[in-house]
């Protein structure tokens, strides 16, 4: 009986195949790193300098695209949550969790770059503008998601509740997106379409600026979140395997 168990361990967990790095992931990571370098070049060198704000305006090429990256990651959480509730396959919950963590990181990039830009332009690091407040609450919602996960011991129940909350939480992301259109007292500029009346630090995009923005948008909005989420999913799968191996060892 014991001998059978020992033999069954390596075949059941297949250590060689699962821990090997997938080639596509390596390729994607290298591509993302190169693209980030190109994006930085476009933002810092290629794009023309904004006449009133100067160099600090270049932060915008990362500030806005990183929000769209967060949006993509949080949308992945909705898809992962919905599919988990439908199929009850763990992999969908892993996708949802990866989406939350990567999305949180990108919202932090978004908040930090916004803060650095606001210091010279608005003369403050932070202000209780509707959009800033909404973006901060969006971050807190996803931190609450992580707290909810930490508060449930039963793994099946944890996945189920997290899926439900992950779907509801997208409302704060949508809220952050549309708030500058419905709250006229915001000072946050709207780069697409007309800015609100009180917008401070608005600027008109010249062709070279548009090119720099359009290069950075898919980099931060697609490549970065997808690459990071893939790594996070891999990490979670490995962690789960370590856990199951530990349980097997303890059972003996």
């Amino acid at each position: 009986m014991a001998a059978q168990n020992i033999q069954s361990v390596p075949t059941a967990v297949e250590p060689s195949r699962a821990s090997r790095l997938p080639r596509a992931l390596v390729a994607l990571t290298i591509a993302t790193a190169l693209a980030l370098a190109v994006g930085l070049y476009m933002a810092l060198v290629y794009a023309g300098m904004e006449s009133t704000q100067g160099n600090v305006q270049r932060i915008f090429y990362i500030h806005m695209p990183s929000f769209f990256g967060a949006f993509l990651a949080f949308s992945a959480t909705v898809v992962g949550g919905g599919m988990y509730l439908r199929t009850r396959q763990t992999k969908w919950d892993v996708l949802a969790l990866a989406g939350v963590e990567v999305g949180l990181m990108l919202s932090l990039v978004n908040l930090a770059t916004g803060s650095i830009w606001a210091r010279p332009i608005w003369n403050t690091w932070w202000t209780w503008d509707p959009r800033l407040t909404s973006a901060a609450i969006m971050g807190l919602t996803y931190m609450a998601y992580l707290m909810l996960r930490a508060g449930i011991e039963n793994p099946e129940q944890r996945r189920r509740f997290a899926s439900v909350y992950g779907i509801l939480a997208i409302s704060t992301v949508i809220m952050t997106l549309i708030i500058i259109r419905i709250r006229p007292d915001t000072i946050h500029p709207a780069p697409i379409g007309g800015s609100p009346q009180d917008a401070q630090g608005d600027f008109n995009l010249t062709p070279s600026m548009v090119t720099a923005l359009l290069t950075n948008l898919p980099i931060w909005g697609l490549l970065v979140p997808i690459t990071l989420m893939w790594w996070r999913i891999r990490l979670e799968n490995l962690r789960e395997r370590v856990d199951s191996l530990k349980i097997r060892l303890m059972e003996k």
Partner: peptide, 17 residues
């Protein structure tokens, strides 16, 4: 959940925003 009462405001306030 384990945290019970303390978790509800944390989960609910952002969603009810």
């Amino acid at each position: 959940t384990r945290a019970r009462e303390s978790l509800l405001p944390i989960l609910m306030l952002p969603i009810a925003l």
